[in-house]
Design a protein around this nucleic acid. Structure first.
Lengths: 228, 228
DNA sequence: CTATGATTCAAACGTTCGTTTGACCTGAGT
DNA sequence: ACTCAGGTCAAACGAACGTTTGAATCATAG
């Protein structure tokens, strides 16, 4: 049998390693987290990572895979539902933005099961120079981005597609900092309430304001974006 | 004499190391760039880094120091000039945003002297987990952020200061992705023109749209932000 | 009870890391 | 000519890295 699925002390070494590695990668980064740190934090033997995953790189990929699959599937399903309800009519931009970025914020609000830690890791990884990590993220996201950018294009027909792509990119940056940068922000001087319940409306109004801002002078169709 | 300042083959090993290290850090990150990569790219001996800088960490700090000092000084000087011209009247939010983020985009547009490379490195480093890099950035930025957030607060008296702080943070995220994420964006599927001359108005209209967006429901003074 | 496959373990592998050392070159000061 | 400080160099340092190995352990199936 491949998965015994019996009672309590099941093959959980694998999961303990995934959880410990995720937390350590958030705290120190990929390169600065050694196999010995991971396995000792997980209470496992040094060889356990290579036994269960094959290599450190494969462990990193598995950490992202197990979380991103659910996230992006939920995003696409929610967009499908929205478009089905609209029955061919273009969606409201705010609804599209809510689906994509709200899904991320919901995971980031889950501090119990490591969701917040993972989203910090993911947000930082967008700018990771490591080649195979970038490629893995790009493959995992390509289809989702295309779907959402397309939906926004239909929702904002006056805005050129390239402008929507750029603004989507800007929105990703704002979300990235909203999730991962809160600690770094407190270091930057001032007090701020870090209530995760208030983060969502804060980020959403900023994102929508940016998305629907008047187009820059050079762009075609130079008018305002559209209604939300 | 400390600086000979004589003719051609002056003590430029130090500068060659700084330039080579900057480029390599952009391409591979801090941890993945070894001293041997740096010194061989700079055409110097392996021991040269420790001789001229003391350690790898000190080299990293010096790379940021020599660039950030000028950038943040220029930002503060431009804000001083703006406030002097206004003669006590609050500034236009768009002018404040232009000064802070325009200064970064100007350096990022300079591909000749490594400005673009450095801004990519800086943008990525905002989310760097490395402890001493974070602290160094925080110290370097604390005063500047406080000045600009204060100016925005006077320009937008209806917006609570904490909301301005958050939106400034979001704007930093958008700028970070605007500068550093362009390559990662192309990997995400679609074609996009990467004309640096168009990047600035694109980002600026997005930032201003977000900054002046209606406040989220929970915030005090729930009205719109302000004029720009 | 024994055989089997999966898992854990201590120990070592070879490599690369950042740093240090001491000799050597060079050019200006006396 | 000699000194001496600033700079460069090849070589080595110990430590930590990711990975591999082969034996020990364990639960279960025959």
């Amino acid at each position: 049998m491949t998965e015994p699925a019996s009672r309590p002390p099941v093959g959980d070494t694998r999961n303990r390693i995934l959880d410990a590695a995720e937390a350590l990668f958030v705290e120190h980064g990929f390169d600065a987290t050694s196999m010995r740190m991971i396995t000792s934090a997980a209470g496992a033997n040094l060889a356990a990572v290579n036994y269960h995953f094959g290599s450190k790189d494969a462990l990193i990929q598995e950490i992202f895979r197990r979380r991103l699959a659910g996230l992006n599937h939920a995003r696409l399903a929610a967009l499908d539902r929205l478009e089905a309800e609209a029955g061919g009519a273009p969606l409201r931009p705010s609804a599209i933005v809510e689906v994509f970025f709200g899904a991320a914020l919901e995971i980031a609000a889950d501090t119990e099961h490591g969701g917040h830690q993972f989203m910090c890791l993911l947000a930082r990884t967008y700018n990771e120079p490591n080649a195979f990590v970038r490629q893995f993220l790009a493959e995992e996201y390509a289809g989702v981005i295309e779907r959402f950018v397309g939906a926004l294009y239909r929702a904002l027909p006056d805005v050129p597609r390239v402008e929507i792509l750029w603004r989507f990119h800007f929105m990703m940056g704002a979300m990235s900092f909203a999730i991962a940068g809160a600690e770094g922000m407190q270091a930057l001087g001032e007090r701020l309430d870090h209530d995760p319940a208030r983060l969502r409306p804060r980020l959403m109004s900023f994102l929508l304001g940016g998305l629907r801002a008047p187009l820059p002078a050079g762009a075609v169709g130079g008018g305002a974006g559209a209604r939300a």
